[in-house]
Design a protein around this nucleic acid. Structure first.
Length: 886
RNA sequence: AGAGCCAUAGCUCAGUUGGGAUGAGCGUUCGCUUGACGUGCGAAAGGUCAUGGGUUCGAGCCCCAUUGGCUCUACCA
């Protein structure tokens, strides 16, 4: 490594090199060590089909910050990585790929297809991992897992068998969302509703044995073929008389009953609903309540089946068209209205889903969910921010049984075996050789695979070795924090929670840190179809991973969405550059002068004590912020401290001492610079790991010291009571106020910094004069003065000198002809007005009896101090004005 | 339909337990070859904290209502 930092900060030069070092040195590795406390995060496993997007970047940046922070604090920090097989997403991709080669999935057969899928996994599964590495993620890669690796498979089978034996998993015919293109059932969560312009067809159903009709309205006329009833609301006076009678289903000519069900909305449509239990979820429920037959009229590809009579074989939409035409010819079509309605589509392929009755496997949720509800209620598991527990409960309170079977090949095959001879169903970890009932050897395994979330639900413990009783599991479980987006609470978080309680008897994690979405500059979701996505890798290429991470975590509160602006990345890069150059400056000076590791603290000046005190306070506050997951607040404080306090004030204060050959406190300045820089770098490291590491190592090399091989395994700074210098802090703040006043006056009077001038500090207070005397060395430079005179009274101050007022002090600048007295009077009047406002507020408060009676002591004291301060300043201003009016 | 969130400077957003909004970044205006940095330094302008009530000595923050915007869940045949 170079002993010197490059002149300009260039992230490309350092990031890959440092990451390689960290990996080679195994800094990310976490091994069971009972002498240390564990801190564990499991990564939300990205899909093997995935490409790093801004959501991943945010999610993983947050995790890495927490892990690096805890690691430095001395925890045994494990970030458990891995990837998800993402059953349907991957299968869809592979089918697409096959299609390009002109191959049909079914031609390959199950074995052949799976072979292709594994090839895909080998080829692309690692891509997202290398992208996570570019971000700086400090995962323990030696522990990388995959939801379909041997251990996870074992866990899945174990769980399935356990739940089945306990009666929580059952097979049943239910109405499910069917994708006619993917040929699989999909869960409710995978259905997206989009509003589409459609029609309302009003159709007459003749009443059997009477004159007349009932009029129904439907958006899907083709489902008429499967109608087994019509329903009315029992309270509806219009239709009470026909309840229990029958109507004749047109075209099909089937007599179907009129049933009464409160599900029917009297206000909507005609108040009469056709009931098609096999093709509508609500109708299915109505059908169950009234014992109606379920007539499936569709094939798996959404063509009409043999139950559709002459419509058999037609596509559902063709059938719709022809059926409407036939109704019209029969004179049974009353009218067609335009009607916008929500149509469910499959989120992977955008096909309109078809509700169908299919035998599927389900997890019974009502009992399993109870501990998961209790855990959040009792705060054993906490959401950050807290408000997300409402969203969680909104879901748990309305939970329905979980359909876990998928008619796919890529995934965990359901461990159920059917006897071809007697029909016995056997669920077992190992394929049975013979039927447990009839002894037949003709057994076949269920063709279906499990919902991809079935395996991710086990992720917090399957990755640590479960179902084996491993040391890792014992030590690292339950994990500490789960970091994820709010969009995934119901898919994943809930399922991990109940699974943790059910299989481990313990919660999977204690805290759930929720973040929002990264949107584009206009606030839209980033999506492929809009083409408004920003590639995190492009940002890393241009500005560095540190800048990206910093951007993602700055100015954002947990759970809130954020907009992406390139300007913000630039601002982050500028900050990195600032840190780089400040470090360069410090190192330049340290190199010239020999410094020691310890210092005679009597050499510390007021300025040194001020910055040490500030840094000390920063350590305390940011550590607390980070412990309560207020990362945005912490990073803002670190930024402000480094840029403003440290660079703009302290470094400038110290320059005269650094450039002096005689100042005996020079060594204290150097010592302080080094110490505060180290604290700053360490606090910043979780947010900007690369640049801080580069500087840390270069600095150590240069000084010939080694606190640690890497900043990432160095000790997190700790608050030290001895560096609490409140007197010096206050004193320097007074000097700063005076300097600001001087700069303000000079700026308003158009006196350029190059024009050095005498400054006369007048204060009656010995204490204050001492402070200025002590600070003279930097006060002069910062105030662009070549001559600072400190005195008790105004003796010798020219009448036309301009001034600035701070508590206890008036600072005069005799600029002679450079100033315009009118302007000075105007300035003083402005200041007077401001002080009048302040005084009015403070006096009003203190004059309020109730305030004095009820407010806390400290608040009253605070206000009294302000009153004193403003009164003093006001007197000084008035005195000056009086002088000019003479 | 149910639930949740948001409304603070021109723009994008912070604001932890209620205690003058010296808020941040960007943008704007003025000045600066100050020996780390112009990806910089200094100064300044810019806010009735959506509206109306309430609680409180005191409200951007707590409570209620209203308006506007967004999201999730459910889904109407």
């Amino acid at each position: 490594m170079d002993k010197e930092l490059a002149k300009t900060y260039n992230p490309q030069d350092i990031e890959d090199r440092l990451y390689k070092k960290w990996e080679d040195k195994k800094y990310f590795s976490a091994k069971v060590d009972k002498s240390k406390k564990p801190f564990t995060i499991v990564i939300p496993p990205p899909n093997i089909t995935g490409q790093l997007h801004m959501g991943h970047a945010l999610d993983n940046t947050l995790q890495d910050i927490l892990i690096r922070f805890k690691r430095m604090q001395g925890y045994n920090a494990l970030w458990q990585p891995g990837t998800d097989h993402a059953s349907i997403a991957t299968e869809v991709k592979i089918i697409e790929q096959l299609k390009k080669e002109g191959i049909d999935k079914d031609d390959l057969g199950r074995e052949g297809f799976l072979e292709r899928a594994w090839q895909w996994k080998e080829e692309y599964g690692g891509r997202i991992i290398s992208q996570l590495k570019k971000l700086g993620s400090s995962c323990d890669w030696d522990r990388e897992r995959f939801t379909m690796d041997e251990g996870c498979n074992k866990a899945v089978t174990e769980v399935f068998v356990n739940l089945y034996n306990k009666g929580y998993i059952y097979k049943g015919s239910r109405i499910i969302n069917w994708c006619p293109v993917c040929h699989t059932s999909i869960s409710d969560a995978e259905v997206e509703y989009e509003e589409q312009a459609g029609h309302f067809w009003h159709i007459k159903y003749p009443i059997v044995g009477e004159e007349g009709f009932v009029e129904i309205a439907t958006t899907r006329p083709e489902t008429l073929l499967g109608d087994t009833a019509v329903a009315v609301n029992p309270e509806d006076d219009r239709y009470k008389h026909i309840i229990g009678k029958h109507v004749l289903l047109p075209i099909v000519n089937r007599e179907i009953p009129v049933v009464a069900d409160s599900y029917v909305d009297m206000e909507f449509g005609t108040g009469v609903v056709k009931i098609t239990p096999a093709h509508d979820p609500n109708d299915f429920e109505v059908g169950k309540r009234h014992n109606l037959p379920e007539i499936n009229v569709m094939n798996d590809d959404a063509t009409i089946n043999e139950n559709g009579g002459k419509y058999a074989g037609m596509d559902r939409y063709t059938a719709r068209k022809l059926l409407v035409k036939e109704l019209e010819e029969l004179g049974l079509l009353v009218k067609i209205e335009s009607h916008n309605h929500n149509v469910g589509t499959h989120d992977r392929c955008n096909t309109t889903v078809e509700p169908m009755i299919k035998p599927q496997w389900f997890v019974k949720m009502d009992e399993l969910i109870q501990p998961a509800i209790e855990a959040v209620k009792s705060k054993e598991i906490q959401f950050i921010p807290e408000r997300f527990d409402k969203i969680y409960f909104n879901w748990t309170d309305n939970i329905r049984d979980w359909c876990i079977s998928r008619q796919l090949w890529w995934g965990h095959r359901i461990p159920a075996y059917y006897c071809q001879d007697c029909g016995e169903v056997m669920v077992a970890k190992e394929a049975p050789a013979t039927c447990s009932k009839c002894g037949s050897t003709k057994l076949v395994q269920d063709e279906d695979t499990l919902d991809t979330w079935f395996s991710s639900a086990l992720w917090p413990f399957s990755t640590l070795g479960w179902p084996e009783k491993t040391e890792d599991l014992d030590y690292f479980y339950p994990t500490d924090v789960l970091v994820t987006g709010y969009d995934i609470i119901f898919f994943w978080v809930i399922r991990m929670v109940f699974s943790g309680y059910e299989h481990m008897g313990k919660k999977p994690f204690s805290k759930v840190l929720i973040h929002g979405l990264v949107r584009d500059a206009q606030g839209r979701k980033m999506s492929k179809s809009l083409g408004n996505g920003i590639d995190p890798l492009e940002i890393i290429d241009q500005y560095g991973a540190d800048a990206l991470r910093f951007t993602l975590v700055t100015g954002n509160a947990p759970g809130n969405d954020m907009r992406f602006h390139w300007e913000r990345v630039e601002a982050s890069r500028n900050f990195a550059n600032k840190v780089w150059n400040a470090s360069r400056f410090i190192m330049m000076n340290l190199e010239k002068a020999k410094t020691e590791e310890t210092i005679d603290e009597s050499l510390l000046t007021i300025a040194d004590k001020w910055i040490l005190s500030k840094a000390n306070k920063l350590v305390k506050e940011t550590t607390e912020n980070m412990e309560s997951f207020e990362l945005g607040i912490a990073v803002q404080k670190i930024y402000d401290f480094i840029w403003e306090e440290f660079c703009d004030w302290y470094i400038e204060m110290v320059k005269p001492r650094l450039y002096s050959d005689t100042d005996e406190t020079k060594v204290a300045a150097l010592w302080t610079l080094e110490k505060v820089l180290l604290i700053s770098l360490k606090l910043l490291h979780p947010y900007m790991p690369f640049i801080t590491e580069e500087i840390f190592c270069t600095l150590q090399e240069m000084l010939g010291r080694q606190e640690a091989e890497s900043i990432m395994i160095s000790a997190w700074p700790e608050y030290e009571a001895k560096y609490e210098y409140s007197k010096e802090e206050e004193a320097v703040e007074l000097i700063k106020a005076a300097v600001k006043g001087i700069r303000n006056v000079r700026s308003e009077m158009n006196v350029p910094p190059s024009k050095k001038a005498t400054v006369i500090v007048v204060s009656e207070s010995d204490k204050i004069r001492d402070i200025f005397t002590e600070s003279k060395v930097f006060f002069a430079t910062l105030g662009h003065s070549d001559n600072v005179i400190i005195q008790e009274n105004k003796a010798g101050v020219p009448d036309n000198a301009v001034s600035t007022v701070v508590p206890g002090v008036t600072v005069y600048m005799p600029f002679e002809d450079l100033v315009d007295i009118e302007k000075e009077i105007e300035r003083l009047n402005k200041e007077k007005e401001r002080l009048e406002g302040e005084l009015k507020r403070v006096k009003g408060m203190l004059a309020n009896e109730n305030f004095v009676k009820k407010a806390p002591e400290s608040k009253i004291a605070e206000e009294k101090a302000k009153l004193e301060k403003y009164t003093d300043m006001m007197n000084q201003v008035l005195e000056r004005l009086a002088q000019f009016s003479k």
